[in-house]
Write a protein that binds this DNA or RNA. Structure first.
Lengths: 215, 215
DNA sequence: GTTTGCTTACTGGCGAGAAAGTAAGCTGGT
DNA sequence: ACCAGCTTACTTTCTCGCCAGTAAGCAAAC
């Protein structure tokens, strides 16, 4: 069996092309229907073949799902011309730019939102993927905070870990609301405000919520 | 047909009891498996009846799901002894207290997380529920911001609407990460930090993210 | 206070329709 | 001639919803 440079077992360019078509279709289907509710036949129909044809390429539904998740990341990196995700303060701007870019691809946003929540259910095949993903992202954001704090001469990172999780959280949460009410607010704009608030909340913690009671 | 004080068509206390058992079981099942993946037989088994018995009480799977969503709200209000959700600055503290309370009931958190994301999929029976819910909650938080701004003598930033969505967003997003990594951070603690940051971001907007670049 | 009549709360079984996966065969490119 | 890339056909397994039947409870009549 021939293998290409990436170690994949398929060679023909037409095949590679077809696999990508299937992956794109799967993103759309799983985004619109969820990964349990979306069927192989749905995916197959979109690329003009039968469900058995999809199985021929991906072996099983679960393998297809995992490849979809991997594909999303790869497509992410490809879109942003930079190979490496920036570190330090630039990371926060990068996150905002990602949110702005996402406004142009609701399909992928929806797939990601649906699949990430689905992953917390019993024995979900994507669970490991999302656990790793959040762990990695939180560390990257935490590192960026450390650099930023040093740069700004702020000694205290006690809230840094919490803030890192919070930044990823707002982005996810805003995506959900944006999918439900696309007209009510802009994803990029809202993400910029929220991320800035949290970053400033680390650098210059303001008054507590308690202190706003009955004055 | 006899009706009780609430206008419900079922009278027998044993029936009311059974219906509640079924609802609790459904919260758990739909939380663990999602509403499409969780089956009526799963729910029925937990209360020791058959799936036809569940249908007898709720008519259809869809009706059961909608009653589960309504039940969650009702249980929410019941748990917090206050009948009325507070307004003004107190609301923000109320949200933090809710997050702290949620730390004790991961089952409900999971059901809510899974179902809310599932709701963005095609023709999901819970979609209207979640659209209404977010619209209502955003307005309540927005109103609280208006009161707070007046109280603090801040002349009404136009970030208020965005901030309201952001607060709900962090809460949701933190729940997702917390479900995946319950040991990494505390839900209440993180929510308190994030909400405070966003509230302060409205009252005292700090430097922009841009301004942190290469100094 | 017991019988009679109706309702409630189920059970068990069935049918229709998906859906995932398998096996075997056809076909066109190299 | 061979093999990748399919299709068609089939099996298995689920799940929802329906239906008929039953046991038990309530309620009014006698």
């Amino acid at each position: 069996m021939a293998k290409d440079a990436d170690g994949n077992t398929t060679v023909r360019p037409a095949t590679r092309e077809k696999r990508e078509q299937i992956l794109k279709a799967a993103v759309e289907i799983f985004g619109n229907k969820g990964s349990t509710n979306g069927t192989l036949a749905d995916v197959a129909e979109q690329v003009g073949i039968t469900h058995a044809g999809v199985l021929h390429h991906f072996g099983s539904k679960q393998k297809l799902l995992l490849e979809v998740l991997a594909y999303r990341d790869q497509a992410d990196v490809a879109e942003l011309a930079e190979k490496h995700i920036p570190g330090g303060p630039e990371l926060f701007l990068h996150l905002v730019r990602t949110a702005i870019a996402n406004e142009r691809r609701p399909g992928i946003v929806q797939a990601y939102t649906v699949l990430s929540s689905e992953s917390v259910t019993d024995n979900h095949p994507g669970r490991d993927y999302f656990e790793d993903r959040y762990t990695t992202l939180r560390r990257e954001v935490t590192d960026a905070f450390h650099l930023l704090c040093a740069q700004e001469g702020v000694t205290e990172p006690d809230t840094v870990a919490t803030a890192a999780a919070s930044i990823l959280a707002v982005m996810d949460g805003l995506q959900l609301q944006w999918l439900l009410h696309r007209d009510v607010f802009g994803l990029g704009e809202a993400s910029e405000f929220a991320i800035r608030s949290i970053v400033n909340g680390v650098l210059h913690p303001g008054p507590t919520l308690e202190s706003y009671r009955h004055d």
